[in-house]
Each structure stands twice: as structure tokens, then as C-alpha cells.
Design a protein around this nucleic acid. Structure first.
Ligand code: MN
Ligand code: MN
Ligand code: ZN
Ligand code: ZN
Lengths: 145, 145
DNA sequence: TTATTAAATTGTAATGTTTATAAATAGTGT
DNA sequence: ACACTATTTATAAACATTACAATTTAATAA
């Protein structure tokens, strides 16, 4: 099924007139297979073997392209660098304050909040973001020790 | 009432053993009076007149101190620099994608989401963040033109 | 297949925000 | 007023991200 996702992603690029390069193919593949939420540097480092000459600028450029095409979501937290999530189904994230782990979390969209916000502020509301912060089971165990 | 907030803030600093300096007084005052959500640089620039020799490091240091004492909340969005909000009552933010305007928005806490997240992921949940994005009335008018 | 052309990549420099550091200064309790 | 530290200042450093120009390459059609 990852194969399907990759094919669909490449198809989406083709339809938008975005050229398919080996670098783009590899970055997409990594994003799809990665169960984590990697930073640009994570991606850069893990493709070092396959693309010894790839520039870090290429990773950033293509992540921006993927974001603009709607294939990838950029997650910006307080800490230094952005993380990237290949878009599949809508979901939220639960984040560990202690170790930074990010876990997917499914929950119906907060439509009511969006509506009220629109009503109260007069904004044309497009979307929202929500994350939940806490301590993951691993870190909880360590603390109790 | 801003006077009361300032007094209470200074009192909170005193009780935590944090010294009260003219710079801290001025930064707090600015945060309380500011109806906006300023960046560190906004604060630095607007206090230039009163403190020609103040270092930008002082602004950052003190914003961190205020955050640690619980007087100030740091807002980190995708864009370059953090914004700071003097803590009064709990509220969320509605943000304009077009001009960056940030508007306060009151809504009851999303307790149910926190509970479900905790139940599903096993996290010890502490808090959450939520923002709503869209187009503010001003920018909507301009677009329609 | 080859030629063409615009788009993408690369390498490097530049940008901008935030932090680290060490010396000078100033707030607080006595 | 004194002593003790916390704080401020000035500056350099760190770091992620972007800008730029030269080179390379993907896509298209002859
Ligand atoms: Mn995710
Ligand atoms: Mn606010
Ligand atoms: Zn953890
Ligand atoms: Zn606006």
C-alpha cells in the first residue's frame, strides 16, 4: 500500500507539472515509509548514502514543493526545526514534552470551534491546528523509577 | 486594571526571588499594555527610546524568566520568530493567513479531546494548543475588491 | 535519437533568530 | 554603605533556512 501512495504522489506531481527527479522520488519514498515525522536534516542524512552529492537545499526546496502541492504537511513546534508529515488521513498529534516523541491521534475535526470562532471574530475560517502535550508512557516509567 | 496586573506581576517576581530591574519593569509594562502579541524584537525596538543601551539578549533572557515564572506564554507559529502573550485568562487565538493578525478567542477548554488522547495513547496529558486559521475581515474586504 | 529548453540541483554565501560567554554593572538584604 | 550575586551588556557563535548563480538534467518534440 505504500507503493500505491508513492504512485499516487508521483501522479499528483506529474499533473501539477512538477518534474520527477531521483531526489524527489527518494524523498517522497522516505516520507511515506517513515513512520516518524522527520526533519529536513533527518531526510538529508538518511539519503546521504544514495545521493552523496545531494544538497540540503534540495531537500528544503522539495519539501516546500510537496507542501504546495498538498502532499506533505509541515509541523512547526517551538523547537528549532520543522517536521514533515506525508498527508494520508486527517489526524492530530500527541507530543511528549520529555523526549519529543510524536504520536498520531485520530479525532473528529473540531467543526464547532471553527464555526464559533468564525461567528465571533468575523474571520473566514479555513482550518485549525491542535496538538496535545504530555508525557509518553516510556518517559513516565523512567520518571517514576 | 493594567496597574493591578503590573503590581501582581512584580509581586510574583519578588516571591520567586527574581530581582526587579528597570528593564524587567518596562518589558512587563509593555506586554501588559500591548493589545498585540509582540515579538522579542518588537519589544526591543519599542523600548529603544527609554533604554538606549539595552541589549536584545536582555529581552530574550527576561521573556524566558517571565515564561518560567508563568507570567507569559510563548506563541510559536510557523514563521520566523516567537510571539509573547501576557497571561490573563485562558484563551485561544484566531490568526489571519494573509496579514498575520492574531485575535483572542474565548472557548471552553477541550477537556474531552485531552481525555480521549490520554486514553488512546497512554500519555499523561498535561495541556494542549489550538489555533484557528483563516482570513480576517479586513483582508477579506481587500480580496473581494 | 538528438536537440531544445525550462526546471531542478548543487555548492556556497547570506539571512535572521536565538543562545552562549565573559566582563561590567546594579539590586537586595544586612 | 557593604557584600554578594543576579543581571545586563556587548559581542560572538550557533543554527535552521533561504538566496543566488552556475551547472546539470527531465521532459518534449523534431
Ligand atoms: Mn502524523
Ligand atoms: Mn492572546
Ligand atoms: Zn517521552
Ligand atoms: Zn488579515
Amino acid at each position: 500500500m505504500e507503493q500505491t501512495q508513492l504512485k499516487e504522489a508521483l501522479e499528483a506531481l506529474k499533473e501539477t507539472g512538477v518534474r520527477i527527479t531521483p531526489q524527489r522520488h527518494a524523498i517522497l519514498e522516505y516520507l511515506i515509509n517513515s513512520m516518524s515525522h522527520p526533519t529536513a536534516d533527518d531526510i538529508y542524512k538518511s539519503l546521504e548514502g544514495k545521493f552523496p552529492n545531494m544538497s540540503v537545499a534540495t531537500v528544503y526546496n522539495n519539501l516546500r514543493v510537496f507542501r504546495e502541492v498538498g502532499l506533505v504537511k509541515e509541523l512547526t513546534y517551538g523547537d528549532s526545526s520543522s517536521r514533515f508529515d506525508f498527508i494520508t488521513t486527517h489526524h492530530y498529534h500527541v507530543i511528549c514534552d520529555s523526549c519529543g516523541k510524536i504520536v498520531d491521534f485520530h479525532y473528529p475535526g473540531l467543526d464547532e470551534v471553527e464555526h464559533l470562532a468564525s461567528h465571533v471574530t468575523g474571520f473566514k475560517v479555513g482550518n485549525h491546528r491542535m496538538e496535545i502535550y504530555g508525557t509518553c508512557p516510556d518517559c513516565s516509567t523512567k520518571e517514576t523509577h
